[in-house]
Design a protein around this nucleic acid. Structure first.
Lengths: 221, 221
DNA sequence: GTCTATATCCCGATAGAC
DNA sequence: GTCTATCGGGATATAGAC
């Protein structure tokens, strides 16, 4: 990152949005331990912010010393890279699965809102990191895949909106690009205030959000 | 901040959400120069993130040396404090003015969306900073006024929603707290992708956002 | 796979001359 | 009001022993 550039080793090449190699780790060995460390790092990055989290913080939370982290990862940057790219990969796969269900545009739209909010329970920290950091990271060559992912997300959502307008389910005055931004900002912002374990369930949020986004707050009778 | 604590002098006392004193500056003198420096700092904080922006960055952009900044401000923290508290003060004043117009709940709701999006043009950097940093800052005693401000924002929006339900303008099934969060996250997120000077005007965004939030994307005929 | 020890650098902030 | 010079600390990352 520009905010974190000491000249860390830039490792392997990659495709645009989906990696064909695993360029982020240093040893080929214990995938399980790496996943554990990434979870610890993700929680800290989400809670304190990426720049404000030190490698010592991560090592402390993992019960090891900071130097030992570098046996598993090239750099702090490689850690957030691994967190974000796997979040994006999983989310795109989830969206693809929704599209493959072959539902109506309106039902597809509702399902997309639902599964996006559902990611809160499975990838809360990653969403927070994606929300807080990707705007800064995306400017760097290493994180160009974030821009490509943004484009893919946009195409998926605007595609559904366009098909809904064509099918007569959505108002013709809907601007797919602007409405996409509204919906995206809405669903990805939820982990900022929602916390797991509370009495507020994601299903309740989904119900309210779908109701407003599809039918608005106004009465229509 | 926890991420930035070197024990900078904590200056004057304050009320919860509105300051009675001006505790953030070091010299009583040139208010104009201070405002200039704050604008420079705000733009950098917004663009790069608060933690990643150094006092040297700010001084460079202002054409002075970093030590000279401390003639105007106690600390870097005092700068973001000044930026955020004046943003909140102005925004609350704007909201109060809308409420004082005495419009119907629905019209008031639409006006609140409009003026919130309008803040993009007058306080874009401050909104970005508020969005990106206040979740971390609010935990510290110095920034307790952020939590109080959150509560006031929430009361304003949920109040309008409740009155709209009572008046029969809004659906009774609307959950004011959840819908408030949806709307808030939506309007404050817009400066992340909107840029001044482009062909996309705030009025166009307002039109689309109001349409979706009030009537949804679905056709109702 | 982790630790000891450290290199190298840059951070926020200060003191005092001009 | 700005500059010169610098303090003290903490940041990422590395080398090599165990």
């Amino acid at each position: 990152m520009a905010r974190d550039s000491k000249g860390a080793a830039r490792s392997g090449s990659r495709t645009a949005a989906r990696r064909t190699t695993a360029p982020r780790t240093r040893n080929g060995g214990d995938q399980l331990r790496q996943a554990e460390l990434l979870k610890i790092a993700a929680d800290l990055f989400a809670e304190r912010g990426y720049v404000a989290t030190t490698v010592r913080d991560i090592a402390d939370a993992a019960g090891i010393l900071s130097g030992s982290l570098y046996h598993h990862f090239d750099s702090k940057e490689s850690m957030i890279d691994a967190i974000l790219s796997s979040f994006i990969e999983d989310t795109l796969a989830t969206y693809d699965a929704v599209l493959a269900e072959g539902l109506s545009p309106r039902a597809t739209f509702e399902r997309l809102v639902q599964v996006s909010l559902g990611r809160m329970t499975t990838a809360r920290s990653a969403i927070l990191i994606y929300q807080n950091e990707s705007r800064f990271l995306a400017e760097e060559p290493r994180f160009a895949y974030l821009r490509e992912a943004h484009r893919r997300f946009e195409r998926i959502w605007t595609g559904v909106l366009e098909r809904g307008i064509e099918a007569g389910e959505f108002r013709p005055s809907v601007d797919p690009k602007l409405v996409y931004r509204l919906v995206r900002d809405t669903v990805w912002a939820a982990p900022r205030w929602w916390r797991p374990g509370g009495s507020l369930k994601p299903d309740r949020i989904t119900e309210q959000y779908v109701a407003v986004l599809v039918d608005g707050v106004a009465r229509h009778d």
